[in-house]
Design a binder for these strands. Structure first.
Lengths: 199, 199
DNA sequence: ACAGCCATGTAAACCGTTACATGATTCG
DNA sequence: CGAATCATGTAACGGTTTACATGGCTGT
């Protein structure tokens, strides 16, 4: 029934518009502080997408000018848009190609200068600890400020996801750092990159 | 000192070549079963990158033909290549833009058909459980088959990362599913996508 | 014979960010 | 008056996947 979906820019914008009518500029701002930890769109994606969405009848536009601000185009989701969003919410998310540069560096850790990888793991741990605190603040903010909103339980779930993930990563960093104490990548000996006959 | 790095295709190939000389085809195969869970490259990236790497003096090529197989180009890392790899391993990994489509759907969960999101969380949990088992098999395989390899401790760390992550996600899925029992997205009432004045 | 793997490469399409261009308003 | 923010849009660039083109060898 649906033609193959390749990306979710349109759907993420519909999701935001399902909360209230907004301009493209506001949509980006909204995403930045709400879904910013797991989804964001840039203007280069948003404006062309909105144009297509109008053509497809998923949204309507209304220009607001002359009320003090610069001209603003307010988009409003149509019933067709709501249906499109519902349909998208019902189908499984496409699995994403995994790419984790830090893990790649860890994997080749014995090729690195001694201590180089451990330092990065420490830095990453510090960053995740900051993230964890932020997620926890976000969680309590969601619970207090949007207690009455029907979306609140779902927003809370996404915040808890961040918390669970951050905690797991911090734990992994600690275990990894402990193990790296006894390993010592390429202190001596392994000097040539020319590759002997290991493997 | 280093000119700005934009991507890590070249470095990932150097990492693989630091283990032993290989053809482009073999590099992809190797990545698929070793770093496949957090890093992979496609032929469309690999072959052009190898060409550039030869020009830059990071690797040398040697054509092997007439030994039964189709012609094969075996690449070997140079000392300059090893140095480049070491340099890259020493600098911090660029933070990646987060994109998690499932979380985006959870966030807009109250706009979905009742049960639609819960079903996806269940499916995701099942998938992560399969992953977890796979990571655990990988871990014991690494420990037994490569016990003597200097890279082993690092490979083991990446496997443990997968295990830690999978466990955290399974836990989150369970908590989320339990909570969704009491929520019930848009059973009745919220019919219009036209957006009232919530928010 | 045909499928499937080995092996290399190119071209097109797509996705996405960043920079640029423009201009109004607001606040210090 | 200048900087920051509001606001919309386009162009260029770069990264990545997918499909295509080619062909030999291996096993059933």
């Amino acid at each position: 029934m649906k033609t193959e979906l390749k990306t979710s820019t349109v759907e993420s914008l519909l999701g935001v518009l399902s909360l209230r009518p907004m301009s493209g500029y506001e949509m980006r701002q909204f995403m930045e502080y709400s879904t910013g930890n797991f989804w964001r769109e840039s203007f280069g994606q948003i404006y062309p997408a909105l144009k297509r969405m109008v053509t497809a009848g998923l949204v309507t536009v209304e220009e607001q000018k002359g009320d003090g601000h610069p001209a603003k185009k307010v988009y409003r989701m149509t019933e067709a848009g709501a249906e499109h969003l519902r349909g998208w919410l019902g189908i499984a998310a496409k699995p994403q190609v995994p790419r984790n540069e830090l893990l790649l560096k860890v994997f080749f850790g014995d090729r690195a200068e001694a201590g180089a990888i451990a330092m990065q793991v420490r830095e990453w741990k510090a960053k995740e600890e900051v993230n964890l605190q932020r997620y926890e603040r976000t969680l309590s903010e969601i619970e207090t400020k949007f207690a009455a909103h029907p979306g609140m339980p779902f927003w809370r779930m996404t915040a808890r996801y961040g918390i669970a993930q951050a905690k797991a990563l911090i734990g992994w960093c600690e275990a990894t750092l402990e193990e790296m104490q006894g390993v010592g990548s390429r202190e001596q000996g392994v000097e040539s990159g020319g590759c002997g006959d290991e493997c």
